[in-house]
Amino acid sequence: MTQNDQPDTTVRNPGWVRRFLVPSWPYLVMLLLALTGVALSSLARGLTIPYWEIVVPIFAVASFFARGDYRDRAERIRAIRQDALHWIAVFAAMRLLMLPQIFELLGADAAPLVLLTVLALGLFTSGNLIGSWRVGLLGVLLAAAVPATAWMERSTLLILLSVAGAVSLFLFIWPPHSWSGRAKS
């Protein structure tokens, strides 16, 4: 009730947090973890494998929650079984690739990219399985990150030289009198 003992008839705006963040949390968690994993695969090779071993179960839980509501208990049990089998298969494929004999064949540079590819395929097929275009899109984005990561590793020197050249060109073109903030008389 309001101050005049009248019922409160104003409609409250739930805000962007409730409209966007709350329903989208599984996708945002997966996106954040995927981006962190891509960065790790470029920067800290030794942490990549343990990171993905931790992330796969988190992706499995997030995919389950991204599935939505269930009509009954039997449908929920079937969904849990499907998701569990799917993500166990993805995890097993990743573990197989980490066996010493296979890891040596792949090499330290290619192994994290192969694991990223398997995870991208797992996300894409999970999106298809649960009927979520957002999870499938995350898989596509992760798959696109594989060649992008490989390119970034090979062209780090090119990128560094390009940035240094752009800064040098900017400093060469920019008038020296503007550096001090006042024009010379």
Rank of each mutant, 00 (worst) to 15 (best):
S63C: 15
R45G: 09
E104D: 15
F103K: 15
P100R: 10
M94C: 11
A60L: 13
A62W: 01
A92S: 13
R95W: 08
L96K: 07
A89S: 14
R81L: 07
R95K: 13
E53P: 01
I54Y: 13
A84R: 12
V56E: 05
Y51I: 06
A44S: 10
P57A: 13
I77R: 15
W87L: 05
F91G: 07
A93L: 14
H86R: 08
T48L: 00
L47C: 03
A93D: 04
G37Q: 02
A89P: 01
R67G: 03
F91E: 04
W52F: 13
F65S: 09
S63G: 15
S41T: 04
I102H: 08
A89Y: 04
V90K: 03
A44P: 00
L99E: 12
L47P: 01
R73K: 11
G68F: 06
M94L: 12
A74Y: 03
L40K: 00
R78I: 04
D72Q: 06
V61R: 06
V61N: 05
F64I: 09
R95Q: 11
V56N: 07
V55S: 08
I54E: 09
H86T: 06
A79R: 02
R78G: 03
I88R: 09
A92M: 11
R67I: 04
M94Y: 02
V55L: 11
E104H: 14
V56D: 03
P50D: 08
A60P: 03
G68W: 05
G37F: 01
P50I: 09
R81H: 05
A93E: 04
A79P: 02
P100D: 10
S63L: 06
L47S: 12
L47D: 08
R73M: 06
F65N: 08
F65Y: 15
F59H: 10
S41G: 03
I58E: 05
T48V: 15
A66W: 00
R73W: 06
